[in-house]
Design a protein around this nucleic acid. Structure first.
Lengths: 186, 186
DNA sequence: AGGATTTGTTACCAATCGGTACGGTACACA
DNA sequence: TGTGTACCGTACCGATTGGTAACAAATCCT
């Protein structure tokens, strides 16, 4: 029954704290569902974490991809990314994807595979964005598109993680702005 | 007996993998010591992790402080920090301090207190370094010393963490160099 | 020498983990 | 009405966790 509700509870619990700190038993209790029910729905813990990450990706990560694909210039897109990382209320408790990626050795193979897939998608999206900026003359590339994409992604991940760990949001924004200033031409 | 050897084993084990993935039982087995012996030496798990972090700080973190206090100019010091983060063999499997800081909610109160103390010390060292550079005209501060120090520390932490997670060392160096280029004047 | 004290170990504790065997219940279809 | 089937939850499993009680051996100090 209500596989969606269980999934919602799982996403929220994993996201709010940390996948490594939320046990299957805890999720069962939170969702008011017996353990065998949960196992029939998701197979095992790996299936649940995978489903949770999948749901999260479609619901939240898609927005980041949308920003990157929006076709604004370099500067406006960077501003939008900074806003998302430093001010979007959904990132207040961090990003479930980053949390899972940081502790991926503790997760099952299916979830790990999804993490790598999402990571590759993100890298590709960043690269497409930078390539477009370079081609339109909006970015005087001093480093490879690949390296720039990785840098961009990691700086955003760092900002979100810092914010989740209680760092002053204004400071986080300041630091991310500084880190991404290398993409801007004066 | 041999509290030093047990501590060595603990530091190595925590450092090599991750404090959250190494149980007390495992350390006892690795060190060839019974559990009650270990408890008599360190009181509880919190005492052991705290002692391990303390030993690590004196042995490894001190080197970073030494670089910051060496009184070379901005550029040479940044180069030394980049070398340390991206090439020092001791950072191949990451930094125990950063690992503990990332998962500090899973650690005991004593260890957490030490983490915060070390964090404050590091921040102070970075601030002293930047202040000296500003005063000597080596850095045209466009942001506060405090923010710059935090940025510097976090970028180094990011680089070390990326390297520990298997990222190409040359790429890590490239990204850290890019991130720290904001401190350099052309 | 001999009691006291430290040092160390075996063997246990309760709690929690992920995972499942199995008995009950409700509904569909004959 | 009888029977098969699909769901659901209690109550368990073995493993592992951090932590201890209780006992044995060695050492030390008078």
């Amino acid at each position: 029954m209500s596989t969606d509700r269980v999934l919602d509870v799982a996403v929220t619990a994993y996201w709010q704290s940390d996948p490594a700190d939320v046990s299957l038993n805890a999720i069962c209790k939170l969702a008011g569902v017996s353990k065998p029910s949960l196992y029939r729905e998701f197979g095992n813990e790996d299936g649940l974490t995978r489903a949770a990450l999948d749901s999260y990706a479609q619901r939240v990560l898609a927005d980041v991809f949308a920003i990157l694909r929006s076709g604004q210039g370099m500067s406006a897109t960077l501003d939008a990314l900074i806003d998302f990382a430093a001010a979007d209320p959904r990132m207040e408790t961090g990003c479930l994807f980053y949390k899972m990626r940081a502790g991926k050795h503790r997760l099952g193979p299916e979830t790990r595979a999804l993490i790598e897939e999402l990571d590759a998608n993100a890298q590709a999206a960043y690269e497409a964005f930078l390539t477009a900026c370079r081609d339109s003359g909006d970015w005087s590339a001093e480093l490879s598109v690949e390296a720039g994409a990785k840098y961009l992604g990691e700086q955003i991940a760092l900002a979100v993680t810092q914010r989740a760990s209680g760092e002053n949001p204004a400071r986080v924004r300041e630091m991310l702005t500084l880190a991404l200033s290398v993409f801007r031409r004066d």
